[in-house]
Simulated assay, not measured.
Amino acid sequence: MATHAVRLNAVTKTYGKEVYALRGVTVDLPRGGFTAVMGPSGSGKSTFLHCAAGLDTPTSGTVHIGETELSRMNETQLTELRREKAGFVFQAFNLIPSLSVVDNVLLPFRLAGTRPDHAWLAEVIERVGLGERARHRPSQLSGGQQQRVAIARALVTRPEVVFADEPTGALDTQTAAEVLALLRQVVDTTGQTVVMVTHDPVAASYADRVLFLAGGALVDEVYAAGPETIARRMAVLGRPEAVRC
């Protein structure tokens, strides 16, 4: 089994002839790790996540999830791969208002036409702290609880990697801390892999490793860093000369 959950090799993404969203990014994201991706606005963070997750296709270079190379797959195969090997958590919770917590968590199985492991389903709902609210609808939950439903939905298929795009962007500080602690716990207790794009140094400090992008290029990384260290590095990346790296 590959030691990486995700591998990008010389990945470039261009729009038109001159707009580079990514410039030759090469990086391995290890299994069982929590990686945060940061950078100034327009640095390529979202494009990085979309290419890594198979939501977008690089202009050149290769992307692997586990041992599977995405560039060799058609759209139908990519859709199946995302259902089987990737979980997604976004800033918008993307819950269906008419469905209960349990039914929202079960959506990936309904879409795939497969049966869930009910013991694992129950465990995941307990892990995210919603055991007593399993039959509630989204309108009966707080924002933080709705994001917990989204995290449970991402975990219930046992994906190789969970991709999170600004998962705390719509939450207040205390609720955001609870959600980030949950993601940290998921990595530490189940060996899950999490890749998170964020603009927040505090959120990034929950990760084992922080990758910094500027001008579409991977320019730096830090390990086990606190919010102050991350914020200082981000301040440097915000300068014009950093974007030309």
Rank of each mutant, 00 (worst) to 15 (best):
M1Q: 14
D220L: 08
R184M: 01
G191R: 05
T47I: 09
K85N: 12
E166T: 04
S100C: 06
D103I: 05
R31D: 09
N94G: 00
Q147A: 09
V89A: 05
L81N: 06
T35R: 03
G32T: 03
A10V: 09
I151C: 04
R31V: 14
E80K: 14
R127S: 14
S46N: 06
G32S: 03
H4G: 11
T68G: 07
Y223A: 14
Q147S: 07
E80A: 15
V195T: 03
T173W: 01
P116D: 11
R133Y: 11
A134L: 13
S98E: 15
L141I: 04
V161Q: 09
A154Q: 01
V197K: 07
C51P: 06
A86K: 01
G144L: 06
G129N: 07
L183R: 04
P116G: 11
C51V: 15
V194I: 15
R148D: 10
I96R: 03
H199F: 04
I125W: 07
E67A: 15
T229M: 10
Q174M: 14
V156F: 05
G226V: 08
F48L: 09
L237F: 01
L29R: 03
V222E: 10
A53F: 00
L130H: 11
A214W: 08
V105P: 00
G44T: 07
G24I: 08
A122C: 07
F163V: 04
V161M: 00
S205E: 01
I96Q: 10
A235N: 10
P58C: 11
Q147L: 02
V124T: 12
T35D: 02
P58H: 12
R209L: 09
G215A: 10
L130E: 11
A170E: 12
Q145M: 06
G131F: 12
S71H: 12
G24M: 11
T168H: 04
H136N: 13
L8S: 00
E69P: 05
N9Y: 13
D200Q: 01
Q146S: 06
A5I: 05
T59H: 09
E123M: 00
G24W: 02
V162P: 06
R158M: 02
A10E: 15
T198I: 05
G87Q: 02
Y15C: 05
A2K: 13
D56P: 04
A203T: 11
G33R: 12
V6Q: 01
V161K: 01
F88H: 01
A52S: 13
D165H: 03
L213P: 08
E221W: 00
S41I: 04
P227Q: 04
A134K: 15
L22C: 12
L49P: 09
Q146C: 13
T229N: 06
E228Q: 15
L141M: 07
V37L: 02
T173Y: 13
V101M: 00
